[in-house]
């Protein structure tokens, strides 16, 4: 088991709808996807963002594109046009989530490194 930052493992894009930030996280392969399903829970995501996500975090699984989608409610200071935030559109939440450190089995990590640039 090793600690890795999500940025070395996933793709992520985020955006807004009202005061909800919508983040999608994409795994490079099925094995990693299954692992992410276990470790990347709504609670973990909510804890990562701390005070910036006031409401609950919902998660959807989208296996056809190896993705997990997180809806973070109460995350944008009132929503784009009512927000005092600089990132009022939530476009930086994806890269923010990539800061998160998760445990990864060595085998998955080795596979990923061998696959390297193909992803």
């Amino acid at each position: 088991m090793a600690k890795v930052q999500l940025k070395d493992v996933v793709l992520a894009r985020s955006g807004d709808k009202g005061d909800t930030c919508d983040i999608s996280v994409f795994a490079p392969n099925e094995a990693v996807y299954e692992h992410l399903k276990r470790v990347l829970t709504p609670d973990v995501v909510k804890a990562h963002f701390g005070a910036w996500v006031q409401g609950p975090v919902e998660r959807f699984e989208v296996p056809n594109v190896l993705a997990l989608k997180f809806l973070c409610h109460g995350a944008l200071g009132g929503g784009a046009s009512s927000s005092l935030r600089l990132d009022n559109l939530g476009k930086c939440f994806g890269s923010n989530l990539m800061r998160l450190e998760i445990d990864m089995p060595d085998q998955l990590l080795n596979q990923l490194r061998a696959g390297g640039e193909d992803r």
């Binding site: 894009r13 955006g15 919508d22 994409f26 959807f60 594109v65 809806l71």
Partner: peptide, 16 residues
């Protein structure tokens, strides 16, 4: 596939 799947789920909330 990667540039497309990133946009595929962009701001859509419940994917079903």
């Amino acid at each position: 596939v990667d540039t497309v799947r990133e946009q595929f789920l962009y701001e859509i909330h419940d994917p079903t």
